[in-house]
Design a protein around this nucleic acid. Structure first.
Lengths: 347, 347
DNA sequence: ACATACAATGCACACGTTAACAATATCCTA
DNA sequence: TAGGATATTGTTAACGTGTGCATTGTATGT
């Protein structure tokens, strides 16, 4: 009679190293070592054990491994928010970039920082490492928490002051500068600006680039030409409508991202004007649709997927070496000249 | 001297129920019960224990919990692919929808099915439940695997035959039908069609809707008017270019999604024609940019975020009740009439 | 006053894995 | 041929938590 033993096996969720041990006639320790390719184990036994494991369809219980190895096999990918302000394209590029380097080495959990009331569950037991895709200084509390818990982490997309982390940041200011500089060289003097989401660092950097370019060319900074937006199309549409109601409208408008530029172009069309003949419009990000719009959108490419990949790579390095290295890596942006900005023609 | 004990505490990753037990002068069993609000424990002791836990900043070790409770606290969110074919908007809407109902009850890991060579690590130990955002019959192997492993799951977005799962699917065929029907009622007779990504079910359904509408109105199905696309802008652009080279071009073109419609509109513009005056164009999905294009895009809204929410809700239900219920839930789509389709005017 | 029920807590083991240490067998060296 | 080194395996405890069962103390009913 073998009722009891059989029942136990049947009821169990799945095969364990003890099952393999029994069949191989060795101890479970030996099985563990064999499956981990320990040099201690004789090659023949090793092969035999591996074969049995294969036949039984053994898969390790990662919860048990995690418990004893103090390693969760999980990394967290945190965004400032998953609601307004994070564009679909941005989100998608980041997740793809991260996944492409992590593959099945870790599980990647995607989160919005703003959904947490308390960070208590963000700790070393839950995450081996954390990628913060930071868009705003709001994230500082979170980043400080992660640093205090001594979880290996990297911060991408926004410059931070902390000392113990890799920080990869696109040079938004330079990108904005070169775009506005380009507009000015095309003869534009009254250049409007639609800001990104308030308190987002990228929004501030882009504004700084705009202002710097204007100052460099000794152009007047008319505050009426600067409008607040929030990175979504509707806000770009509204802001542009306001600009078009001014007594003296700008000949060119720089929108802090491509989505707002789409909204802005719509407002221009509705006013009976044409882009770029009557007014030039540019965006930022080089969103995937930008090249396909009519007119195609002049913008600045920001290599988000590459930043995500590099960041994930650096994080894995840090997790596996155990060293916390501080490193600031700026990433160049690239001006994409297309059709939506034309030389200024006085009428 | 208290060297040894202190050292152990200092070196440990964090506070455990045994630490709390020691301070409270009870056994760790009592602590475990108290923190889980067991009715067995006296209210006073319970309060005292909870307070100590609070003071020490205790957080449970989910790996240990998982091990003993056979529950991973993780759910998997699987897409057919994270590469071409899955649009950023689709991806984003789904993740947001799922996260909004799951919150911090489970960790959500996002995956592309096509990155797996072997599904071995997809099992009950790793996932308490799985959401398959299925776009193609390619996923059938995966779905079968999940069903065999008896992991609670739901399949969204694509109709399946399996018996033990909830299946929520937008009625793409009906949506496509009503859109093409609308075009025909606007007087169009030669209506082009740009197909979605090959082997994607949504692509086939939309084609079926197109053909059904044409047949219903007894219109000729000219195979020259049907072009293969792959759901991205470039393919829409190329397909439309081909259609415009025909000796007799269509007066309206239905693109299987909005992204291809954007590419198609570009091709029309480049040929010197105008949308919708010279040729009408429509898409599918009601992408966030569709209302903001000029002309705004006539399309079909598919409530992806709602599907994701409902699906996540059903999954949680299934996981927590332990019942596998088979349920097919079709979701209506909605025709969004905008500017890019105009009544047909013979020239 | 005594059996009985019940409330509250502890003991001991289990979950599946790894690892320090112990144990054995085998081989080599002087 | 004794003694040590080495290769291979096993014993046992540990990771942090939950739970069946035993235990203790207290209240209840007769």
């Amino acid at each position: 009679m073998m009722g009891a033993a059989t029942n136990r096996e049947v009821n169990r969720l799945s095969v364990t190293i003890k099952d393999i041990a029994r069949l191989a006639g060795v101890s479970h320790t030996t099985v563990s070592r064999a499956l981990n390719d320990s040099p201690l184990i004789n090659d023949e036994t090793k092969q035999k054990i591996k074969q049995i494991a294969e036949e039984l369809g053994y898969t390790p219980n990662y919860n048990a491994k995690s418990l004893v190895l103090q390693k969760s096999h999980h990394i967290g990918l945190f965004f400032t928010t998953l609601d307004t302000g994070t564009s679909a394209q941005f989100f998608y590029d980041v997740v793809r970039g991260v996944q492409s380097v992590i593959r099945d080495r870790y599980q990647v959990s995607v989160k919005g920082i703003d959904t947490y009331e308390s960070f208590e569950n963000v700790n070393r037991k839950a995450f081996d490492g954390i990628i913060v895709m930071s868009q705003s200084a709001q994230d500082n509390d979170f980043i400080r928490w992660v640093a205090e818990k001594e979880i290996p982490y990297v911060v991408l997309n926004r410059r931070i002051q902390e000392e113990h982390a890799v920080n990869i940041v696109p040079d938004d200011r330079q990108g904005a500068f070169s775009l506005v500089d380009f507009m000015i060289r095309q003869g534009h003097r009254r250049i409007g600006f639609i800001e990104g989401k308030a308190r987002f660092q990228s929004a501030e950097e882009r504004k700084a680039g705009y202002m710097e370019a204007m100052r460099t060319h000794a152009l007047e900074l008319d505050p009426m030409l600067i409008r607040q937006g929030s990175y979504d199309m509707e806000s770009g549409y509204q802001a542009m409508k306001q600009l078009l109601e001014l007594p003296s409208i700008p000949s060119a408008v720089f929108c802090s991202n491509d989505e707002m530029a789409v909204g802005a172009v719509k407002a221009v069309s509705e006013s009976g004007r044409k882009v770029p003949d009557d007014i030039s419009v540019a965006g930022f990000d080089d969103h995937s649709f930008s090249a396909f719009l009519s007119p195609s959108l002049t913008t600045v490419r920001r290599p988000i997927e590459k930043i995500a990949k590099d960041g994930a790579g650096k994080l894995v390095e840090a997790m596996e070496s155990g060293e916390r290295r501080s490193e600031f890596i700026p990433v160049a942006t690239q001006l994409m000249v297309r059709e939506s900005v034309k030389p200024f023609v006085p009428n």
